[in-house]
Amino acid sequence: MRARLLAVGWAMAFIALALILCGIIFQASGFSAPDMFASILDGAFLSDGALLHDLRWACPLFVSATGVIVAFRCGYFNVGTQGQFYLGGIGAAVAVAMLPHAPAVLVTLAAILAGMAFGALWAFWPGWLRIRSGTDEVITTLMGNFIAVLLLVWLTSGPLKDPAGSGQVTSSPPIPAAIRISTDTGVSGWIIALTVLVGVVTWILVNRTAFGVLGGLAGRNPVMVTWQGARLSRLGLGAFLFSGATAGLAGAMEVLGPDGRLVSGFSPGHGFTAVLIALVANLSVSGSVVVALFFGGLASASLYLPVIAGLPSAAIDMVNAAIALFITARSLPAWLRLPKRNRS
């Protein structure tokens, strides 16, 4: 318990350092740092409806982060969350397009399951390559992100394109309200229920199943669990599929929820923020609830800043990047100490 509190304390200290660094840069580029932080705080948590916006962004981020937690704990650095998230959105949109006459509830369920399946598929091939031939999953999952972005662009400007659309950003036709799981606010019973369900399931998986303990051991020392008779390939593939499915679910939640259609290039920073949440929370499921709310706040502030305060929203990207930098620096010594992974 003390160790966990200490870890949280360290994470807070690093976030504070990141904010100080941002403050210096704001000040140096001609903005008033106190004003900037006040506006971010306003946009994130204090202004009317800020907490609702916060939740709107935090829910899908948390869902994706749970998958990152499981994969990273097992020692697989799946950083393809963004691609798996997009595939999830595509899966949901495809399911909706293919079931034009089915009852709304069934379409919704089918779309959610299709999103999870597509996301899992996008994690399956890097997982397979990793386990079969030792291909570095960091490279393959990153590359998968680029392919997924292009797939999304192609689908939204080709097969799934809304013929009535005239905006600059191409998208699929709007999804009927009966099929959607929330209005444009992005907060609804469905979304909260799905998020809570994923949180509970992941917490049980990590803390109360044989998979959780063995995965944790395998992540720290795969050689040891091999000598205990574990089949790393099964354990690893399970971790990849779970993380892909959760990211896919988050994508489906976006498309069926606040977005209401498949938009080209939606939520571009989602996957990396999810990885960041998992790392800041020290791969703890309960910790990432709080951290996801914090990053959800930053995400809503980035929409608030240019509109209400007339400040550049890039400030939020900078805050995110600075936090990423400091958190990675914190985890780096621990990663370097990890025993070499078995490449058999």
Binding site: A210, L214, G216, L217, V225, Q228
Partner: peptide, 24 residues
């Protein structure tokens, strides 16, 4: 696994005899 808790190191053999999703 030097960085893992002692109880996990001890429990590993027994846990591997179970199915992965069994509750502990």
């Amino acid at each position: 696994s030097l960085s893992s808790p002692l109880w996990e190191n001890f429990a590993a053999r027994g846990l591997l005899a179970k199915s992965a999703l069994s509750l502990i």
